[in-house]
Each structure stands twice: as C-alpha cells, then as structure tokens.
Design a protein around this nucleic acid. Structure first.
Lengths: 275, 275
DNA sequence: TAGTGGTCTAGACCACCAA
DNA sequence: TGGTGGTCTAGACCACTAC
C-alpha cells in the first residue's frame, strides 16, 4: 500500500463534491482504473479482512470511524459495507456493530451443505472420519487447487450418517466425502484434531488454520456407485449416487479445498433455489 | 386499498422527519405492521407489477416521478428499486430508465437451466417436442401447483439435444423434460404454438399467457433411468440420471409450473455457485 | 445515556443516452 | 440539450444494545 498518510490510494474520480477530492492519484496497478469511491472503500476493507486485521467473529470499526479514517461520508462507507454484507463477508447487527462473518455460528452452519431430508427438516448428521493422509497432489487435484502436481496435500475421507437421534436405531450412511486440502496451509491437521473438534469443519479451518471459505462452485452429476462407495454407503454397486464436486475459495478467489461428495439420494435431496 | 388520495396506505412509522409523515394509518391487514417507508414503496411497486400495469420489457416511471407520486424522496424510491433489481424483478439501465425484467432477453435465457457442457461453454441445445396433452392433475402434481386434484392441467414432454451445430453429426439427447402447467392459466397452449415459438419457453409464457416466472425451487437426486427415459435418451435402462424437480413461482409466491427433468450427465454437469 | 446500525431527506454533480 | 440512473455529502431522527 502506498504511504499516503491516513488516506491510502483513494482516486477521487467520481462525483465527490469537494471534501474527498484530494487524495487523487493512480491506483497501485498503474492503469487509470477509475471506480466509485464506495468501491475503493470496499476494496480497502476487503484488504484488511484478507490481511487478518479483523478476525472472524470480531467487530470492525463503526461506520463513523471508518468514514473519518477514509475521509468520506458515512453513507459512502455504508454502501461499501452493504455490499460486503450481501456477499456474506460481514454481518451487521443493529445497535452492536458490524462483524466479520464466521462459519463457527450455528446459523450459517449449513450454508454449503444443500442436502435435505425428504421428510422433516432436521439436517444434523453424525460424522465418522475414515482416514487422513498426507500425500502428493495428483495432477487433477493440483490443477483445481492451483498448486504444482506433486505438492503436499492432505486427503481426508469421511462419512455422514443419519439419523443422529435414537442410537438404538442403526444409523444409515448418506454421504461419502473425499476432501483435498493444500498441505502448505493445513500443516498440523491430524485425525485426532479433527475428531476432537466440535462444530462445523469450516469453523475449524477458520479458527485453527486461519483459512476462511467465502465462496464455492459445485459440479453435480449422477454416477453409479463404485466398489468403494458401495461398501462405505452399504449399497449395491452401481446404485445411482449424486456426485457433488465442490471447489471452495478464500479471499482473492484463491482455491483452498477440493471436495467430492457422493450423496445417497433416496430419502434425501439436494435443494437449490433459483432467483 | 384505503382511499387516501394520491398517497395510498403509507404508514409513516419510521424516521421520516416531517414531509412524508402525513399518510399515517394502519395497513390493510389491521395489525399494526410497521415497516420502513422504502419497504412500503417496494410493496406498492410490486403490486403494480403483479397487476400488469407495467409489462415485461417496458420501462417504469423514473425515480423522480415515483418519488413525487409517493411523496417521498428520490433516495427512498431508489432503495426500493435497488432491492427489486437485486431480486431480478427490475433491470436498471443508466441513462435510459428502469425496466421490467423479461425472460425474452438473450442474457437471462439460462437463468434457470444450470446444465453446462464439461468442455466449452456453448449451452445452446436443440428442442424436440414429444407431446402435449390436456388432462386432469394427479394428486402429487395438484398439491405442488396448489390446485385441486383433478383440475385441468397441461402436460408436455420434450427432449433437449446437443450439439446444435453440424447437423451431419448425430445429435445426442441430453435432457428429458416433463412439464405440468395449470390449465386455467394456459388455455390456448398447443403443440403448434409451442413449436412455432422462437426463443425461450419462459419468454413465450410471458408474452403469450402473461405468466412470468420469478423464482424457483429445485430438488435434485440421482435416479436410475426407467424404460421410458432410457428409450427417449437412447441409454441402457438403469443408467444414473440427474433428476431435477423444479417448482416455479410467479408474483405472490404462486406456483405455476412443475417440471421434472432427467439429465444425462456424462458430458454435462449441473453447475451451482454457493455464496 | 452513549454508541451502534437503520431510515429518510435535500441537494449537488457525474455518466450515460437519445433526440 | 434534457432526462435518466449513479454517486456523494451533510444532517436529522429512529431503533436497538449495552452500560
């Protein structure tokens, strides 16, 4: 960041009447990319988030604070925060402040898992960790994670079972997940730490490794169960399964998790909303 | 609507300094449901959209017009329109105006069809209509469409094929759609009209029947191809297929289409983004 | 009571578009 | 040139939360 005292790199290119029209200058890149003030504020806030200045769950400075800091009006800061809140990077709480979003909260627990039971709406499932291995990335995994083929990766496999209640009834395996993580970011990850951790896995990634998922892309297909999946899910080989390939990203659109889930969709379905 | 002249049912419950604080009164329902001014404006605009005052593709009055009409400031109208634009009900075009969103445009053509080819990004597919029938609604269809079991419905089936280019190559069937529509809303729908119409089906529903889809819910599973699907898609019976059950809604969350698609996902996949 | 986000206004200027 | 949406400001008051 350029050393513009107390007013870093705001290019006053828009209809700012006068007050904020001083910090004129070309952005870091050099190319004259003029953008609205609130977009520049948004970028600055995002940079601080990415740098970890404000940690997940913590509150960020108040709108008036930020307005003073950036030498713009409250309304401009507000519009920047509005967009960040719409992107689920921040959470506003009236009377309390604005907070960095976190996966460790109950509400957002199922933001990424779209599997729903056909009857009822209890989505809680038991977890059973199968194995955790540190290996080298196969070519396709490396390509997805944007690392070099052969780089260290963590591969873990697990099963989700339902129902959770009534341990006398036999739990049915529903999801078989295979997860690939870049080894560089997840150094101390072990089966024990995973097993010990309560709460959502993405919450653990956040608090233990400082890796926060903010976005994901999924490719969904129908595939027949292979021998492994059939055994793990206790189904005949060839049973149609939902294959959900998810690539998750952190700040800066950096891919940090590749996950392939096989869902048994006889009493469950993948729910999607189109807007 | 209460007969408040030129200022229908605005309950001035919030921080309006003075100007718009006159139209005070309880909303129609009777219960004192206080909501921000911009929300009330939003509801009023939505009501006009639903009533068909402004047709899809047409422009709505300018922000200043609406502000004067509703006796609020431009900023308040702006916030209402912002939300409606975020919900894809309106489309803003700088310098031109604000327009009622329509499915008849190229850009939004694939808002609901999430199927993508694994290679390339040409999503165009050829359509082949199999049959159109007017029958009575089975129980499950009636329940989904919120009509009475036995009410008139239109059932139509079709196939989507790829690729479109190079007619010398044999086109491969990829999607087998079965669509149910309430007969009451789609009176003159026939195979001929469907075959004749160029452009997206939802565009036709809009211009020919005044039914605009604004939202949909999908339930996705993996199922084995039954005899019919196997024949239509030219696949062995039992082949895993993606079953996509879509329920589409118009204004007022009224369900108006039930669609079950069976997708062959060997060279295609269903793409989803999680935010 | 003080501080936070939430709403609303009034007025200014800019960017874009069409006539 | 005039009209439209887009940005920005300054200041007011409200609703909620904590002390």
């Amino acid at each position: 960041m350029p050393a513009t005292p107390s007013h870093p790199s705001l290019s006053g290119a828009s209809g700012a009447p006068e007050s904020a029209a001083d910090g004129v200058g070309l952005p870091v890149g050099g190319a004259p990319s003029f953008s609205p003030l609130y977009q520049q504020i948004k970028s600055l806030i995002m940079r601080e988030l990415q740098a970890g200045v404000w940690k997940p769950g913590e509150s960020i400075p108040s709108e008036l604070d930020l307005a003073a800091r950036f030498k713009v009006s409250q309304g401009t800061v507000r519009k920047a925060i509005d967009e960040l809140a719409a992107e689920n990077l921040l959470v506003r709480r009236q009377g309390k402040g604005t907070f960095v979003a976190t996966h460790a909260e109950e509400q957002i627990q199922y933001r990424f898992l779209r599997l729903m039971p056909d009857e009822g709406d209890d989505r809680t499932m038991a977890r059973r960790l199968l194995d955790v291995r540190r290996t080298r990335a196969p070519a396709d995994v490396a390509r997805a994670l944007d690392i070099k083929s052969g780089d260290a990766v963590v591969q873990l496999r697990r099963v989700l079972l339902t129902p959770v209640q009534d341990p006398s009834a036999r739990q049915q395996p529903v999801v078989f997940d295979e997860i690939w993580l870049p080894g560089q970011l997840f150094k101390g990850l072990s089966a024990e730490r995973l097993a010990d951790y309560k709460g959502p896995m993405y919450g653990m990634f956040e608090t233990e490794f400082g890796v926060r998922m903010i976005r994901a892309e999924e490719r969904i297909r129908a595939v027949p169960a292979d021998a492994t999946a059939a055994e793990v899910l206790a189904l005949p080989p060839g049973t149609p399964l939902l294959s959900v390939e998810r690539l998750s990203f952190t700040y800066g659109d950096k891919p940090v998790e590749l996950r392939r889930g096989l869902y048994h969709t006889v009493r469950h379905h993948y729910r999607n909303e189109l807007n």
